[in-house]
Each structure stands twice: as structure tokens, then as C-alpha cells.
């Protein structure tokens, strides 16, 4: 069995966002790039599954749509245990373009399970997994917080408002995963870092469809009014203010 994990390369989540002078672009100077946290959880779960599959899952491939600056994060995925990697050499403009290009690769290189994170922490897109499944005409399951193999059949739980549903779909499918799918991401060991050098990273040129949308400008959120402090001794006054002034209760 083969698992594909889609990785997005994003600025570290503590990055302070700055805009270019004319607000037409984000200032990415000095940004540290990391694997999108949800994608990293997907990868962690894929590795866990492979390790306990007794050989039934033979390869974990990671795929990124991005230019060469994404390679350090791809290498990190290889260092923590992915078997090989694919990079589609394109600086993508939107989710549509990413999904279409990954689909073009998968059509010629089939996988049994495809994992993608529910959201990217940069543009907060959450469409790649669903779009990819639609391009491939295969099932997708969203908000997956649990994925395990029951024999040869994958079993999933998805988080619905106020609860969970345990569901199954036939392979191949796309699982769009969220928190809960795995614990903390792995830290690469020296051995893994050394092996990552020897693992295959295939670079292919884009053959999918182009973007349908593009960012034309950016803005910073409006500054918030100053906090109104309430004396701790009269904390109960808060309830009055919430009712009379803020009018939220």
C-alpha cells in the first residue's frame, strides 16, 4: 500500500506579518519556512501507520507544489521518515492550481491513501484536499481526527459539530486531517537526517491547470481600542458592562 502526503511550505506560525510599502505583497524577507502544521500531523500519522502495518504499507511519499526554496522542508519530511518525495516545480497562485497539479501527478502514479491538512496556516486555504479528490473523482473525507487500518480497510472518524462520526470509504481516497490525528510532530534523528540525503526527490514540471484566482492586495487588521480594566474587587461589574455597554449578554 502506498500513502501520499501533500505538504505545503508556510512561514513559521510565529512569523510577524509585514506588508510591502504599497501593500501589494507580503514581505517575506527573513521568514523561516516550515511544513504546514496540519500537513505535518498528516505525515506523522502516515509514519505511525506504516510502522505498525508490518510491511503492508510500503511507501510514504510526500508531494509539494513549489519552487526550490521548498526543498529544506521536503528534506525534513524525508528526515523524519518519508520514503521519497515529489516536488512540482511551480510557485502556485491558488488552491485550484495546487490541487490540479498534484492530481496530474497522481493520475500517473496512483496511491491508496492521500492525506492533506485541513488548512494552510498562511493563506488559510482549506480546499486542496477536496479539490484534489474531485479532480481524481475519488472520495474525500474532511475533518478527520482519527485514521487507522482495520485489517486492510481504513477506518476514520470525522469531527462533526458536537460529536464524531465513524466512517469508511473505499480506497483510494483523500483524507483531510485535523488536530487529533497525531500527537506532536516528530523531531528528525541524526540517522534520519543522514538518510534524507540519499532518498529520492523527484522534481517534475507542472502539467496541471492554471489558477482561477490571485491575490491583488493585502491589509492589516484595524487596531483595537484600548482595554478597559475592571477592579478585581468589583469583578462582578463586568457582567453589568457586558450587558449595558457591550450588549453581548
Amino acid at each position: 500500500m502506498k500513502i501520499l502526503v501533500c505538504l505545503s511550505n508556510v512561514p513559521d506560525t510565529t512569523t510577524k506579518i509585514k506588508l510591502s510599502g504599497d501593500q501589494s505583497a507580503l514581505d517575506m524577507a527573513g521568514v523561516q519556512w516550515v511544513i504546514n502544521p496540519w500537513d505535518e500531523l498528516a505525515l506523522t500519522r502516515a509514519l505511525d501507520l506504516k510502522e505498525k502495518s508490518e510491511g503492508k504499507i510500503d511507501t510514504i511519499t510526500v508531494i509539494t507544489v513549489g519552487e526550490s526554496l521548498t526543498e529544506p522542508t521536503i528534506r525534513k519530511a524525508l528526515a523524519v521518515g518519508a520514503d521519497d518525495a515529489v516536488r512540482i516545480n511551480l510557485n502556485p497562485t491558488d488552491d485550484y492550481e495546487v490541487a490540479s497539479n498534484i492530481a496530474a501527478w497522481v493520475k500517473n502514479n496512483p496511491y491508496d491513501i492521500i492525506l492533506s491538512g485541513i488548512e494552510s496556516s498562511d493563506f488559510n486555504g482549506s480546499a486542496v484536499g477536496g479539490m484534489l479528490a474531485e479532480f481524481l473523482k475519488i472520495p474525500s473525507v474532511s475533518s478527520v481526527s482519527f485514521l487507522d487500518m482495520e485489517g486492510d480497510k481504513p477506518l476514520m472518524k470525522r469531527e462533526i459539530p458536537g460529536g464524531t462520526e465513524t466512517i469508511r470509504v473505499p480506497m483510494p481516497f483523500v483524507a483531510i486531517v485535523q488536530k487529533g490525528i497525531a500527537l506532536d510532530p516528530r523531531i528528525p534523528a541524526m540517522r534520519g537526517i543522514m538518510m534524507a540525503r540519499k532518498k529520492e526527490l523527484t522534481v517534475v514540471e507542472p502539467t496541471g491547470e492554471g489558477a482561477k484566482s490571485t491575490y491583488i492586495g493585502f491589509a492589516m487588521p484595524k487596531a483595537k481600542a484600548k482595554v478597559k480594566m475592571i477592579d478585581a474587587e468589583n469583578a462582578g461589574q463586568l457582567i453589568t458592562l457586558l450587558h449595558e455597554e457591550a450588549k453581548v449578554i
Partner: peptide, 9 residues
């Protein structure tokens, strides 16, 4: 790249 990965780890 490797030195940076070790630093990050």
C-alpha cells in the same frame, strides 16, 4: 541544509 535541520531538531 543539514546543519540547519540539526539546529532546528
Amino acid at each position: 541544509e543539514e546543519q540547519l535541520m540539526i539546529q532546528q531538531a
